[in-house]
C-alpha cells in the first residue's frame, strides 16, 4: 500500500467507501471476545428486555473500528495522526454499516503535509450512526 501524494489530493475528494456485512448477534459475540467488552446490552436479550429495550445493539466502538478499517484500507496505519468520533445513534442487529470519508482540508502540521477527513458511519438508509474526523499525513 502506498501513501497518496499530497498534491494529487483535493478538498472534496472522497476516499474508497466500505460497506460491512449486516451486524449479527454473532458479530457482537465476536466483538465481545476481541474487545473484552462483554456488557450484557450487546449480548443478552433477556437483560435488555428487562431494561425496556427491544433488542441488543452494537458496541459503539465496533462502528469506530469499521471507520478505522475505512482509513487503513486507504493509507497504511502509520500515516494516521488523529482519529476521533462522536457517537450519535445506536446500531441495531441487521443493519449494514456504510462508511464513507471525504477530504475537507489540506494542511501542514508539525512539518508534515496532511489532510483532514470527515468520516461517516451510516446505515443503508443513510441514517448517520457516528461522525468522525481524522488527520492523515500524505507523501
Amino acid at each position: 500500500m502506498t501513501i497518496p501524494n499530497f498534491d494529487a489530493i483535493n478538498v472534496g475528494d472522497e476516499i474508497p467507501s466500505l460497506t460491512t456485512e449486516p451486524v449479527s448477534r454473532l458479530t457482537l459475540a465476536l466483538y465481545a471476545t476481541g474487545s473484552g467488552d462483554h456488557h450484557p446490552l450487546h449480548l443478552d436479550q433477556d437483560y435488555v428486555r428487562s431494561k425496556g429495550m427491544k433488542d441488543v445493539f452494537a458496541h459503539g466502538m465496533l462502528g469506530m473500528a469499521y471507520l478505522g478499517r475505512l482509513l487503513t484500507q486507504w493509507v497504511p496505519q502509520e500515516a494516521i495522526r488523529t482519529f476521533g468520533v462522536r457517537f450519535t445513534a445506536i446500531t441495531w442487529i441487521g443493519e449494514s454499516m456504510v462508511c464513507t470519508g471525504k477530504v475537507v482540508e489540506k494542511l501542514e502540521q508539525n512539518g508534515e503535509k496532511c489532510v483532514r477527513l470527515e468520516l461517516t458511519c451510516a446505515n443503508e438508509q443513510g441514517e448517520a450512526k457516528h461522525k468522525a474526523d481524522a488527520v492523515v499525513a500524505l507523501a
Binding site: T20, Y31, G34, G36, L62, A65, Y66, R69, T72
Partner: peptide, 14 residues
C-alpha cells in the same frame, strides 16, 4: 490471539 479475534469481529481482511 486476541487481535485475531478483534480482526475477525471487525471484518478485517489485511
Amino acid at each position: 490471539w486476541q487481535l485475531k479475534w478483534f480482526a475477525k469481529a471487525t471484518g478485517e481482511t489485511n
